[in-house]
Design a binder for these strands. Structure first.
Lengths: 247, 247
DNA sequence: ATATTGATTTTGTCTGACATTAAATCTACG
DNA sequence: CGTAGATTTAATGTCAGACAAAATCAATAT
């Protein structure tokens, strides 16, 4: 949509004015999001070549590559030799009337959740079956810590990540940790800025101590049920945020 | 285990004799596997620095980085500045008496399956609920193609991948495709060589046409059940291969 | 009309240099 | 003698420039 190919002479991409990226991958992605919004790029449209992006943002081409590959892994863009980097069609197939960046973010967040949900449930199931005494103590401690930080009104997101990491550790399968890490990263690289204030998922925090108890007591059914509830609540919250920005 | 730090003077790592890597990421990982086995490296032991590996294998340092980062993402190694790249403890915690490379591969394969299982089941569930008529035709066609190739005794692995890809497409969520792609890649980058001949999972092929039918007819319960069976059978087959190499 | 060849553009890779970081070593002082 | 802090050093992280490979597009020949 919009103008089919944005790169015919490369002029309107100049919406990407240098933007003072400090150099982190995250900054690069944010700048690109903004650029996409400014230039009104849509399905299949091309992003500027790596070298141009690097020049404009004043970072190395390797950094730009790293960022674009991250998007590629998330299914947001496709990359081919000569054809360049293009916005992946599927991501934008359902058109809604939000600003494009928010649209990408919220939709991707829901897609990410759809993948995260079964992983978290499986992880907690295996963890509940295999948890050692020491690991159980860690899980309980993390839950208590999370609750305390939450009730104190501070930023509990890191504590939340640590709690889930403890469960992944207890599962004994490092891949759960890794995949969750990947997902976590996609949350943060793209969604932190717009959704940061919303403290996505805060309604789920009071459930976590009960989840911890179920895990250490070996109650698989309860543990997986609560984890499912948590995932459902996060999803509902994302949808609510989308609605809120809509209208 | 083994000699604690393998890099004190870099001499015994010379087991990594140049090995004629043709340059693909896969080749680099294979060469490193072999090197680890030769040098009898164990938990926490260090791999040589990137530059050395690159020099020995006659590839660019960027290639070596790419390969090591892939292993890092799979949880096989940890990477820190000065500390270098080390074999991750968790991966080797259960010591069995297989050659180290096979040990890594089979164990990692099982771990990978544990993550893949819930993803595939969730994907087929969503796909069954959302599948369009056209996508259904594709799925049926892929299943038929897979069956034909299998019965002809040819290599059906690519067809199998296409079948699953069709289901992921039908789910409408590109992330399923991406995650599955990541997993598929870990299968191939590490496990293809030793397990290639085994044609891992061949017992499951006759189930696929029924799975396709269940998906297009909207029968969620049957579809998820068959997918679960398929995953179980692959896992059982991996375990059997491990046993076979044991003793 | 179709196939082939060639030019061009863009990503992919290599190389070498420098920045950054964290371990290891050394030094000074209690 | 031992510990805190400063210095050295070795490894990954980043950058920039050059070249390789590939895919598109155009021009040409059959």
């Amino acid at each position: 949509m919009s103008k089919e190919s944005a790169g015919e002479n490369g002029s309107e991409i100049d919406a990407l004015q240098h933007l003072e990226a400090t150099g982190s991958k995250r900054d690069v992605l944010e700048a690109l999001s903004l650029m996409i919004e400014r230039a009104q790029l849509g399905v299949g449209d091309r992003l500027p070549p790596e070298v141009e992006i690097a020049k404009k943002l004043n970072v190395g081409r390797s950094k730009v590559r790293e960022a674009l590959v991250a998007w590629q892994n998330m299914g947001i863009v496709t990359r081919n030799k000569k054809a360049g980097t293009r916005l992946a069609a599927e991501v934008f197939s359902q058109t809604i009337h939000l600003p494009l960046t928010v649209k990408i973010e919220a939709e991707s967040l829901l897609r990410t959740l759809a993948v995260r949900r079964p992983i978290e449930i499986e992880a907690v199931k295996i963890a509940t079956q295999n948890v050692s005494e020491q690991q159980g103590k860690i899980i309980l401690a993390r839950a208590a810590e999370l609750m305390a930080i939450y009730e104190a009104g501070e930023d509990w997101r890191a504590a939340d990540a640590r709690f889930h990491a403890a469960i992944h550790d207890a599962s004994g399968n490092p891949l759960f940790h890794q995949f969750s890490h990947l997902i976590q990263e996609s949350f943060h690289t793209i969604y932190d800025a717009p959704f940061g204030q919303v403290h996505l998922g805060h309604e789920t925090i009071p459930l976590h101590p009960n989840l911890a108890k179920a895990v250490v007591s070996g109650d698989v059914e309860t543990a997986t049920k609560i984890m499912g509830q948590i995932m459902d609540m996060v999803e509902a919250e994302v949808r609510r945020v989308m609605e809120g920005r809509d209208v």
